[in-house]
């Protein structure tokens, strides 16, 4: 497990990574927002920082962007220190804040042309407005744009300077499905053009669909990292439904040492019948759930008169992994 948490750190001999954070700490007074976070993001790839609200995603991104200084640890962006080398990094890095950042009285096209004029070889603003469906809103002041239009304008401003790396802080929060897909398409196109993308999200689907590399963050730490497939494939589980008073201790004793049995979710009450519960057998073995384990569980069920309804081996979804790692409690923020 330990090795997989920071895969790119130990393979860093090649080109410097787009972002490399080591033991990053960020505090606000007595609150610790980032508590020793280590992760890396490759150039020309999409990295998703996935975590619940308040996990420290924005603090992490804003430290990489040079807005905040780390209280401890080390951050390198394109091999440079974002605080000390800010002037050198700014032309090379695009930024989309979580909200706002545009004067309320500035017109959409005017703002994009302004940001373009700060760069030597920008993408033509009109092309970008058209790509993001903003051409008809080009003369509209920012305050009169819809929330989705505002988000897309901020996204356009982040990429108009043809940066090597962009930071997108919750780029699709609050967007309707069409706008979300337009944003996803743009992110994929950025990657295809060789632009590194670091985005924060709490949408599982977004991370699973877009990211080459996912870093799951909780309470200011990376709790897992890897390609979405890696994170889910190695976490197969055997699922079935049986009576709620199943003797899990007995089944657990029958399993090999690396495997565990656990309840999933609440018992389903049924009128006139014993309540039933979902169970999952998980294994820490690298091969996941092998045929032997299926046979062991089936044999135990046969010996104990249990009929395991819906017995199946499945890959866990990123959401399962996420919830398992970050817990099911509602967060305050």
């Amino acid at each position: 497990m330990q090795g997989r948490r920071s895969p790119a750190i130990d393979s860093g001999a090649m080109e410097t990574a787009a972002v490399e954070a080591t033991d990053l700490v960020k505090r606000y007074g007595a609150t610790t927002a980032v508590a020793g976070l280590t992760f890396s993001a490759a150039r020309g790839a999409v990295t998703a920082l996935l975590g619940p609200n308040g996990a420290g995603k924005t603090s992490t991104v804003e430290t990489c962007e040079g807005f905040r200084r780390a209280d401890a640890g080390r951050v390198r962006v394109l091999g440079m220190d974002p605080a000390a080398d800010a002037a050198g990094l700014k032309p090379r890095v695009g930024v989309m804040l979580q909200s706002g950042g545009v004067p309320t009285g500035a017109r959409a096209g005017e703002w994009l042309r302004l940001v373009a004029s700060f760069h030597a070889r920008p993408v033509p603003p009109e092309v970008l407005l058209e790509r993001l469906g903003l051409l008809s809103a080009a003369a509209t002041p920012f305050r009169r744009l819809s929330g989705g239009q505002q988000q897309r304008l901020c996204l356009a401003a982040a990429v108009v300077g043809r940066p090597e790396l962009v930071f997108l802080d919750e780029p699709t929060a609050g967007l309707d499905p069409q706008a979300r897909h337009a944003t996803w398409d743009l992110v994929c196109e950025l990657r295809d053009c060789g632009v590194g993308v670091v985005l924060t999200t709490h949408y599982m689907e977004e991370a699973e669909r877009l990211a080459d590399h996912v870093v799951i963050i909780d309470h200011g730490r990376a709790v897992a990292a890897g390609a979405p497939g890696e994170l889910t494939d190695s976490r197969q589980e055997l699922r079935f439904t049986a009576e709620t008073d199943l003797d899990t201790a007995s089944l657990g004793a029958a399993l090999p040492a690396a495997a565990r049995i656990e309840r999933r979710g609440e018992p389903a009450e049924r009128r006139g019948a014993a309540p039933r519960t979902d169970y999952a057998v998980t294994a820490d073995a690298p091969e996941g759930i092998g045929p032997d384990l299926v046979a062991t569980v089936s044999a135990w069920c046969a010996a104990n008169g249990v009929s395991p309804e819906g017995l199946r081996v499945q890959r866990r979804s990123l959401e399962d992994v996420f919830l398992e790692l970050t817990g099911r409690d509602l967060r305050e923020q």
Binding site: K90, P91, R92, P103, G105, A106, E110, W111, R113, L114, S117, F118, H119, A120, R121, V123, V127, R131, V159, G161, R162, P163, E164, E189, L190, D192, C193, G194, V195
Partner: peptide, 27 residues
Amino acid sequence: SGLFTPAPGAAPPHRMVAAQAAMELRI
């Protein structure tokens, strides 16, 4: 493809200041 191929670089300072000043003035 190619629209976003990285080509970073800052504009000359006088162009940045002129563009920003024009924006501030219009607003």
